[in-house]
């Protein structure tokens, strides 16, 4: 028995070393890939191969990003990079949260009531593939222009795909778990809270990460349509003022922040659903 305890407690440590090294190696490759691209870019501009006015080189863009001058607008509409980023992140989280919660609600309803499943799922299946950008005119007409319009576009972008993937995850639960839960006299509520939701948590986390990508793209589309704040607005304004370094800073920020948020969600998911790995 002691032997078994020893083996069990040693196992995670034995695995940690190579995993830690693997993560380090991945990070180094990641940095190398970017260093190569940035170096090539700088070189291409310096050698006259690329036009630095259209594609400002890293030597211009990077100092500019941290100079505090990466700002658009005047007076009330003046918006710095950090501020724009925060506003956009807030909109994405709002839309993502609302979209996911409504999707979960729809998934629960369509699982519990077969009639509603037959009525709701065909609608979701047809609406889900519509690009969030296509909703922008409709959104402006209904909600008007302003921050809530961008949140609503994100909400629409998330709702359809998230509903479909949650329904699929619920359908994929091994029926044996539900049989066992019923045999253990679990109530309907307990089956949801202690069996179904934990069972779909790993795939729901993956869906949420995918939904974040969609939301991150949708919010910019929303912000480019007549809203006076956020990263999308910043990029459009910078374009109109032909401030290419600022466009570049905006684009790079979108990429870096999107990447970081995705990694954080991945870590969070592993934390919450460690049993699945």
């Amino acid at each position: 028995m002691n032997q078994a305890v020893l083996t069990l407690s040693r196992q995670p440590d034995a695995r940690r070393a190579p995993r830690y090294l693997g993560a380090l190696r991945d990070t180094l490759w990641f940095l190398l890939a970017w260093a190569l691209l940035i170096g090539a870019w700088e070189l291409a501009v310096q050698s006259g191969w690329l036009d630095g006015r259209v594609l400002p080189p890293p030597s211009v863009t990077l100092p500019y990003a941290f100079s505090g001058e990466a700002v658009v607008g005047f007076g009330q509409q003046r918006s710095g990079l950090l501020e724009a980023l925060l506003v956009t992140l807030l909109r994405v989280s709002g839309g993502l949260l609302a979209g996911s919660l409504v999707a979960l609600l729809l998934a629960v309803i369509t699982t519990e009531v077969k009639l509603l499943r037959r009525l709701i799922l065909p609608l979701v299946q047809t609406l889900a593939p519509i690009s969030p950008v296509a909703w922008v005119p409709f959104t402006i007409a209904v909600i008007g222009i302003g921050g809530q319009a961008a949140v609503f576009v994100v909400f629409l972008a998330v709702l359809g795909t998230m509903t479909l993937s949650l329904v699929a995850a619920l359908d994929a639960i091994d029926p044996q778990y539900l049989n066992i839960a019923r045999n253990l006299r679990c109530t309907r509520q307990q089956i949801w809270l202690r069996v179904r939701l934990p069972a779909i948590a790993p795939s729901a986390m993956t869906s949420l990460r995918m939904a974040f990508f969609g939301a991150w793209m949708a919010v910019l589309a929303g912000e480019m349509a007549g809203i006076n704040s956020g990263l999308g607005y910043m990029i459009i304004m910078a374009q109109q003022m032909y401030n290419m370094p600022l466009v570049m800073v905006g684009v790079m920020t979108i990429g870096v922040v999107g990447f970081v948020v995705d990694r954080l969600m991945l870590l969070l998911g592993r934390r919450l659903t460690g049993w699945a790995s």
């Binding site: 778990y177 066992i180 253990l184 006299r185 679990c186 109530t187 307990q190 202690r194 069996v195 934990p198 069972a199 948590a201 659903t273 049993w275 699945a276």
Partner: peptide, 17 residues
């Protein structure tokens, strides 16, 4: 249930008793 510990797996049967 793979998401529950050994003790939770048994306890869930007792909660409804």
């Amino acid at each position: 249930f793979p998401w529950m510990s050994a003790v939770e797996n048994i306890a869930i049967a007792l909660l409804n008793r």
